[in-house]
């Protein structure tokens, strides 16, 4: 008896509350990103297309050590090393990557390669528009990867929330 009375009072209130939310969302406007007409927003730590970095003096950071290929769980990286000469110097030390291929179809963008890199040469940047008409075009060569790719259609958000590790564990 008591429950029924209670229900009769609360039910309309609940309905009104739900309708309130619906009404609020109805008035809020669309969240759909009109990509590619409008730029997409990504967080700074979003992992997209790789890039090979250079030092400020233009020398390649990559030393062709192939630790990225060793760390890669999908074996999508192929590196062949060669030796720098004084006439043809590509990187600061003795060794540079003669071939550096990444197969973007195989890559799962886990970022282990960047983590393994001893010279911070390979990093995952934000570009995710990697569709191709030909499978072979998805294998990015070293020349492509060395070209920085900061497309206009991407906006990096600056409101990323960093959660400290210890706050995670305490929860």
């Amino acid at each position: 008896m008591l429950n029924e009375v209670k229900e009769a009072i609360t039910a309309p209130l609940e309905v009104a509350k739900a309708m309130g939310i619906t009404l609020k969302q109805f008035l809020r406007g669309p969240v759909t990103n009109q990509f590619p007409d409008e730029p997409a927003q990504v967080y700074p730590r979003f992992r997209g297309r790789h890039a090979l970095k250079r030092y400020e003096n233009g020398l390649e950071r990559c030393i062709g050590c192939a630790l990225c290929a060793a760390a890669c769980p999908t074996e999508c990286i192929y590196v062949e090393a060669a030796e720098n000469t004084d006439e043809d110097r590509r990187s600061p030390g003795e060794r540079y990557a003669k071939i550096y291929d990444i197969n973007m179809l195989r890559c799962i963008f886990c970022g282990y390669c960047a983590e393994a890199c001893p010279t911070e040469a390979v990093v995952l940047e934000h570009d995710f528009t990697l569709a191709e008409y030909d499978r072979w075009d998805a294998v990015y060569s070293k020349e492509q990867l060395l070209e920085p790719n900061n497309p206009e259609y991407l906006v990096v958000r600056d409101d990323e929330v960093f959660v400290k590790a210890d706050t995670w564990s305490s929860k």
Binding site: A70, A81, E83
Partner: peptide
């Protein structure tokens, strides 16, 4: 063999 390959490859 200099820089030919890594041993695990």
């Amino acid at each position: 063999f200099r820089f030919g390959a890594r041993s695990w490859e």
